[in-house]
């Protein structure tokens, strides 16, 4: 009998995927204060609190199903989307099939909450964008950033899950660029460049959020027991030039066509971790509206814009 094999625990059990990542580790630490956590990742996991259960496996494999069957999960926090297009040639399959598989298990084993960390990048940086895109804006990101089409697909899978399994409290967060002392993503790495290149004659508005603030938003969403899609924005918007100025960086402006050609060459030669389409983020706006998250979840970032920007300089822990 399935039920009898369940362990009796004092606290609710949460399964977190992508737990070996820098952000994953922060999320697991935060979850650990309120829940029993099962941390899943394909990579070896280190640096987590002692009583967190580790599971080094692929979410598409059988071992995950055993966890769902035996642990009586309360919530699944899905952070395990491969964001780095260079990391794995099978990233598309991993992200799409992995998300699909988790949702199947969530509905089959009656998990109460499902939370996924998507990204505001899936709206795409575009000259035609209005300011402050709401959650209903079309997801055009993959048009010019082909390497994020799996994120768009995963986002869509979760959107359809709202209708397929309305009884599950499904939450999808679409944060703006996450930066901080520990995270390493293209945005944070860009701000760490000693002489960042910019596109000559362009200075888009950017939104950043501190890694601790997005963890906070995630915890609030879990506690709220709500459902829906939420843009999560940090402490305001700033032109790229002023962000670099706060960091004391001297940018290297390059004409758009030249920058694109150079980056494409470097990318093909595997000399850079920045996909060529990332350039659009420093050329055009992708500014989103976080009103829904602040109203429904009561989310407010704790770090000021200056603190958020300067956090990329803090020594890596």
């Amino acid at each position: 009998m399935v039920r009898e094999r369940r362990k009796h625990r004092a606290r609710k059990v949460v399964l977190a995927t992508g737990a070996a990542g820098n952000l994953g580790r922060l999320v697991v630490q935060a979850l650990h204060r309120e829940y029993d956590v099962i941390a899943v990742d394909r990579r070896p996991i280190s640096g987590l609190p002692k009583d967190v259960t580790h599971l080094q496996t692929d979410v598409r494999l059988r071992a995950i199903q055993d966890v769902f069957r035996t642990e009586g999960l309360h919530a699944v926090v899905h952070l395990g989307l491969l964001q780095n297009p260079r990391a794995d040639v099978n990233a598309y399959r991993f992200n799409v099939v992995g998300t699909q598989r988790l949702l199947e298990l969530v509905s089959r084993y009656g998990v109460r909450q499902f939370l996924m960390l998507s990204s505001a990048n899936i709206y795409g940086s575009d000259p035609d964008n209005s300011y402050f895109l709401t959650e209903d804006a079309p997801l055009l990101g993959a048009e010019h950033h082909p390497e994020i089409r799996d994120l768009v697909a995963a986002d869509r899978i979760v959107q359809s899950f709202f209708y397929r399994c309305p009884e599950v409290e499904t939450v999808m967060l679409r944060p703006v660029h996450i930066v901080g002392p520990t995270v390493r993503n293209p945005a944070a790495d860009y701000l760490r460049l000693p002489r960042p290149w910019t596109i000559m004659g362009f200075d888009p508005m950017l939104q950043l959020i501190h890694e601790a603030d997005i963890v906070e938003a995630l915890m609030m969403a879990l506690r709220a027991g709500t459902k829906g899609v939420f843009n999560v924005v940090g402490p305001g918007e700033a032109p790229l030039s002023r962000i670099l100025e706060v960091l004391g960086r001297r940018p290297r402006p390059i004409p758009s066509s030249l920058a694109r050609a150079m980056l494409r060459r470097a990318w093909n030669l595997k000399m850079t971790g920045f996909p060529p389409s990332e350039l659009r983020h420093v050329q055009y706006n992708c500014v989103v509206d976080g009103t829904r998250a602040s109203e429904a979840l009561g989310f407010k970032p704790r770090h000021s814009l200056r603190e958020t920007i300067l956090s990329v300089q803090d020594p890596l822990i």
Binding site: P127, D128, S130, Y131, F132, I199, M200, G201, F202, D203, M205, P239, P255, S256, Y284, N285
Partner: peptide, 25 residues
């Protein structure tokens, strides 16, 4: 709508408060 595609012009217009004419804006 073509203003945000122009180098320098796009930045100048934004700084002096001029905005792309989408209904949402």
């Amino acid at each position: 709508k073509w203003v945000p595609r122009l180098p320098w012009v796009s930045v100048f217009f934004a700084r002096v408060g001029q905005i792309v004419g989408t209904p949402d804006n």
